[in-house]
């Protein structure tokens, strides 16, 4: 089965309009991209879109009540809500350094959830 999809590349502000041809679940042609990153993006986007996830976790003993976190790699878009449910279970204590892992290998994806800033202990 051949299918055509129109995508907008989200990798840079150019926002190129990509045309993707998919045959039996595999991308066979990408057009409209200005640079190779567009092609790479389309290959994944047309089949299984991947995204960086950012959120917050509760933190105790810090300047704010929550700590911003980010995934250190992309997670399938279809798993975002499951991933959020895992993140909701986490509590951390200050001090925390930027880059500290707060959740290893989320949903077996190989991606970690890490602190996206430092928060010192305040009493």
């Amino acid at each position: 089965m051949t299918e055509n999809k129109e995508l907008i590349c989200i990798n840079c502000p150019m926002g190129c309009r990509l045309n993707v041809t998919i045959e039996d679940g595999r991308v066979t042609e990408v057009t409209g991209n200005t640079c190779p990153r567009g092609r790479e993006y389309a290959l994944k986007e047309a089949v299984d879109p991947m995204r960086i996830l950012t959120s917050t976790v509760r933190i105790e003993g810090a300047v704010h009540r929550v700590l911003p976190v980010i995934s250190d790699g992309e997670i399938p878009l279809r798993q975002m809500f499951e991933a959020m449910a895992e993140i909701k279970k986490i509590d951390v204590r200050a001090p925390i350094k930027e880059g500290d892992i707060v959740l290893h290998d989320i949903l077996g994806s190989g991606v970690n959830i890490i602190a996206s800033r430092t928060m010192d202990r305040v009493d």
Binding site: I52, T54, T56, I70, S116
Partner: peptide, 18 residues
């Protein structure tokens, strides 16, 4: 807290706090 900061300056997609 979302990512997308610093693409020009650090060639990385950082969160705002980072």
């Amino acid at each position: 807290i979302h990512n997308g900061f610093g693409l020009q300056r650090f060639k990385e997609q950082l969160s705002g706090p980072a």
